[in-house]
Design a protein around this nucleic acid. Structure first.
Lengths: 196, 196
DNA sequence: ACCGTGACTGCACATTTGTGCAATTCTCTG
DNA sequence: CAGAGAATTGCACAAATGTGCAGTCACGGT
């Protein structure tokens, strides 16, 4: 998974995988039959891990404490399973059925969370909620996809440690302006809104 | 460039390129010496096209009419040079010096545009403007990177025709809430802000 | 003690791929 | 029209790669 994620499937040979695992290349083909089988197994492992991640969600996204943007929750949860984040990146990049499946699932999870936030009154309704949901998800995923570029130009890693805090704070600031309710501690003047 | 963009450099052989061009593989190596030379030439061509795109910008981004989000302007300008958008996608995905260079240039262009908008008073200042600038750029690029996934799940192409209009409208709606000044035709109540 | 099953390996083979080289054809110029 | 230089090609070769096959070794159940 590490090799596939970093260099792409086609750029990695079965012998590379075998060498990284400290075994012979024959053993790899013995277990997974073909290279495609190996790729399928890696995809299945990633999808299973993602499923497990999503199982945890419904319990925690009712309170306002979970409001700290999809970026924070998604990135931190992915952090718990090493290799999953770079592999998810490669999965989305390479496209195909697995990518559509995982993207669809992420979209569904995002839709669910946003729906709860809207019902709780901490998020307003958009004019085009389907597109808005996808856009928020896409914005979050973009941080993963362009992680290296952001790191290289801004000087910090946006999905880890202090860099994540800084990036998430800006995302939160961006979303809080009317998409989410203005924060009470804002230095801007407040005004009643049509929402509630 | 089309083959590199769609399948990645390693997945495309020199013979593939030659076949697509209707010539022998020897001619390709004759002109570009090695496969790396071919890749470098393709990169140079893409970077030159991008440079040309950015030359046009300073003249038009003073008026409020140019406010229609970086997404619209970037995507529509890339549209004028076919192959550039998918190639830019592959460039950013594969990483490397060329990717850093083009990302840095895009970031500089974004910074310039946002600075002018802030000076014109149609955009407020953020708490962390460096990060906010990068985030806006990254959000726009994400539309290109995840184009296929968005298309597959939402049912329309977010970077072309009517789909672009719909996607850009949502982006504009998202950004207009306080990041840009609230539009005058908003149905929400208005309030004075500390900005100006 | 026997043996079947699975982990594991070395070897081989056909195909692909990058690259070099000699030869041929095309094109433009003096 | 002749020839120089570029365009273009066929061929070859070594390295890499996916895949198949026979065989060895460890181990748990009967």
């Amino acid at each position: 998974m590490a090799l596939f994620a970093e260099f792409g499937v086609t750029a990695v040979s079965v012998r590379d995988v075998a060498a990284a695992a400290g075994v012979s290349s024959s053993l790899v083909t013995h277990h997974y039959a073909t290279k495609g089988g190996l790729k399928d197994a890696a995809d299945a492992r990633a999808l299973a891990a993602l499923d497990q991640v999503f199982e945890l969600r419904p319990g925690e996204d009712t309170a306002e404490g979970a409001l700290a943007s999809m970026q924070t929750s998604l990135a931190s949860q992915l952090q718990q399973v090493p290799l999953l984040m770079p592999y998810l990146r490669r999965l989305l990049i390479d496209g195909g059925p697995a990518a559509e499946r995982v993207f669809g699932r992420l979209l569904e999870s995002t839709r669910h969370a946003l729906g709860q936030w809207q019902q709780a009154g901490i998020m307003r309704r958009g004019a085009d909620d389907d597109v808005l949901t996808a856009m928020i998800l896409v914005n979050d995923l973009a941080t993963i996809l362009l992680r290296d570029q952001i790191h290289a130009t801004l000087g910090f890693d946006p999905v880890q440690g202090a860099g994540l805090q800084r990036w998430a704070a800006t995302a939160l600031e961006m979303y809080r302006q009317e998409i989410f309710s203005p924060p009470a501690d804002s230095e801007h003047d407040q005004a009643p809104r049509s929402g509630q």
